[in-house]
């Protein structure tokens, strides 16, 4: 598969949120605004690219039996590095996302890509795969965050175009489920049409 195809397939065909339905916890928990969703997506993407590269490089030295624990250790090391760097450069975003940053460790997308792709492909291909899936994840989170922000607080990317408050329910917990549910319906409808 060509490198470009590896990167673009994550956007629609293998979109981690809408097509593969993975990593639902941060998808629902951090998308209270477009920027928060985007921040979470980019943080996950960094971890994904780095862990994919390292795992594909060291996979053949790791005995099969301790494969999963080793991957988890590598992933959590990168998560902690991202966590420390965010505290320095993006302290306010770090505070908003809170515990969802360390929880990238148990995001099924990251471990899933290590297991399904990185441990049997070259370093560069794995990096492209991580980048593609990461971009798809970032895109979905930004879209969900944008929809929730527009409906819930009457703004987009912190730009208030409405004088009032918007429909608060979309910023709160139920709105997360509802917006994701309806967006998924939309995604299914659009992709189904394309296939026909």
């Amino acid at each position: 598969m060509s490198k470009i195809k590896l990167i673009t397939k994550g956007l629609v065909k293998d979109n981690p949120t809408f097509a593969l339905v993975l990593g639902m916890c941060p998808t629902l928990g951090t998308t209270t605004s477009a920027l928060n969703g985007m921040g979470m997506g980019v943080a996950t993407m960094c971890v994904l690219v780095l862990s994919n590269m390292v795992i594909s490089a060291v996979a053949r030295f790791i005995p099969d039996k301790v494969r999963i624990p080793s991957y988890i250790v590598i992933i959590s090391a990168f998560v902690t590095i991202i966590q420390l760097l965010m505290q320095v450069f993006l302290p306010s975003l770090y505070e908003t996302l809170g515990l969802f940053i360390p929880l990238i460790v148990v995001n099924c997308i990251v471990l899933g890509r290590a297991e399904a792709f990185a441990n049997k492909n070259s370093v560069i291909d794995s990096a492209c795969d991580g980048l593609g899936i990461g971009l798809g994840f970032t895109l979905s989170l930004t879209v969900i965050g944008l929809v929730r922000e527009v409906l819930g607080s009457g703004s987009a990317f912190n730009w208030h175009f409405l004088g009032g408050d918007g429909m608060l329910i979309f910023v709160l917990a139920p709105g997360a489920f509802l917006v994701l549910g309806y967006l998924m319906v939309l995604f299914k409808k659009l992709t189904a049409k394309k296939e026909e």
């Binding site: 060291v58 030295f61 790791i62 005995p63 039996k65 301790v66 624990p69 080793s70 250790v73 590598i74 959590s76 090391a77 902690t80 590095i81 420390l84 760097l85």
Partner: peptide, 19 residues
């Protein structure tokens, strides 16, 4: 088997300590 896991843990924590 345990050795390789141990090495990974060691390398990772060393890396974290540096960062």
């Amino acid at each position: 088997m345990l050795l390789s896991l141990g090495v990974i843990c060691l390398v990772c924590s060393a890396l974290l300590a540096v960062v």
